[in-house]
Design a protein around this nucleic acid. Structure first.
Lengths: 193, 193
DNA sequence: GGATATACGGAGCATAACTCCGTTTAACAA
DNA sequence: TTGTTAAACGGAGTTATGCTCCGTATATCC
């Protein structure tokens, strides 16, 4: 019953190359706002056949997810680094701001996030976890240091942050988002009422 | 150049009836989670031809928007009522909780919200305004009463709230969302840090 | 160099969005 | 009530796009 892996052969080099090319093209398109780009077009730009695209990514969501996941992983990786460099609360604040910056710079996350939530939700199952773990560690540290109330749910903060990404249009958006980070931090402090 | 209106005739009754029927069917479908329901199916359930649907709503987004807008308007209307019944901060808290309840009860908003943000964005232009006005009045009152810091942007709170609607799956979600409301309120108080 | 698993490509199918236009009907006036 | 007409209807047909299928090509390994 155990899932046996028998990698009889090393994965083919052309396969990996094409896969990466597809991801690059897709990411580039999403970043420019072409969220609804036809998959045929993605394949064309990547210089591969449509069949190849579908072999690597069984459907549109799978492709978006792959792009999305890579970005989120990088964001999550920043958490431990920040935790090592700053006191708990400031580490959290810095991370949340990074989150905002990240969304502001690459439109990948926000648009990809939408249109997926309504779908299978399978994306969140994983990607959620990796981010969840990141905030979790930061918030736990703040609570352990007595800076945060013990009843703060890290997910709450993540949710609020994700919301901001939905509105990532409009001028002055970034500053607004960073103010929100401060509100959230302040509201979570143990000294607060 | 002024936009002249000459309603030579009263709008036809069957037209209005069909339009309403389409809205009802669509709302019902969305509420049950059938966000991707084919428009032919919507027309069929409403007992009208596909042509009729498209005359009333030029495309899918227009239909979703119409449903969505009606719901948001109702939510916005609650703001003045609550403001009359409670002191400023509590009115805001109550309204934000209503927001959460609303999302929890009817899945209309969350799924419809997604898949539209990535689109034309025209939806937010209006619907945003009506909600914006609602929160604005509540927050302004709280600031005027000296309960909130003067630099609080009502939109920040709205954004955070909208984010929660994205994660409206998973157990214990509602309680979590309400905790977030409290965090936001606490973080906005003038007494805080 | 031969065998074979692995990957490729793109024609073709299915589905769903959206258009077009001939037919029907509600509103109004005489 | 009946005639006129603007308004609305319906659904066949067009187009666009997601996705499948399978014969061909090639990287890997021996």
């Amino acid at each position: 019953m155990t899932d046996v892996k028998k990698p009889r052969r090393r994965p083919r080099s052309d396969g990996q190359r094409n896969r990466q090319q597809l991801l690059d093209v897709a990411k580039a398109a999403f970043t420019v706002g072409e969220v609804d780009i036809p998959l045929d077009e993605v394949a064309r730009r990547a210089g591969v056949g449509i069949g190849t695209l579908y072999r690597h990514f069984p459907n549109r969501d799978a492709l978006i997810e792959a792009v999305y996941r890579a970005e989120l992983d990088r964001l999550a990786e920043a958490a431990p680094v920040l935790a090592a460099q700053h006191p708990p609360v400031e580490a959290l604040r810095a991370w949340m701001r990074l989150f905002v910056d990240y969304i502001a710079a690459k439109q990948v996350i926000a648009p990809a996030l939408n249109g997926l939530v309504g779908g299978t939700g399978a994306l969140y199952a994983h990607s959620g976890d990796v981010l969840k773990a990141a905030v979790n560690s930061l918030v736990s540290a703040a609570i352990a240091a007595g800076e945060f109330r013990a009843d703060i749910d890290p997910l709450d903060l993540l949710r609020a942050l994700a919301g901001v990404s939905n509105f990532s249009a409009g001028p002055g958006w970034e500053g607004s988002a960073k103010r929100l980070v401060d509100i959230l931090i302040t509201g979570s402090r143990s000294s607060a009422s």
